[in-house]
Amino acid sequence: MAMSDYKEIIRQYQNKSGGIIEAYNAIQKSYGYIPEDAVAAAASAFKVPKAEAYGVATFYSYLKIGPRGRNVIRICESAPCHIAGAEEVVKTLEKELGIKMGETTADGKFSLEFTECVGQCQATPVITVNRKPYEGVSAGNVAAILAEYK
């Protein structure tokens, strides 16, 4: 996918009332994050001050300005996942990837983030990779999940 796409994406949503969040979601889907310049472009396209375009992008925890790993792994730390052993999963992921929560691997492949409940609590603990949920995760099956993205 072309990396200058964000202008085109913004254009698609420009005439939609309230479309700025839709545009951000679509940009993030394409890039994995929101480029700095896209925020300024969104501000002028949606006719809001830059501060507001920034304010919107930074309010939502799934939107991220600036580069991060191509694959974003999120670990649910809400109470049901917490008591089911989310901490063990965190430790295993940190060890497998050699990074801490909130960091990105040197090759830019993976980022680790916390999330709250992702609505898949029928088999806890739960992680998501690029918003795709994996249930019943344990120290034993983390490596197999990562292998899908390596």
Binding site: G18, I21, N25, S61, Y62
Partner: peptide, 8 residues
């Protein structure tokens, strides 16, 4: 359909 972006 409109999508949220992670805010309880």
């Amino acid at each position: 359909v409109r999508m949220g972006a992670g805010a309880y």
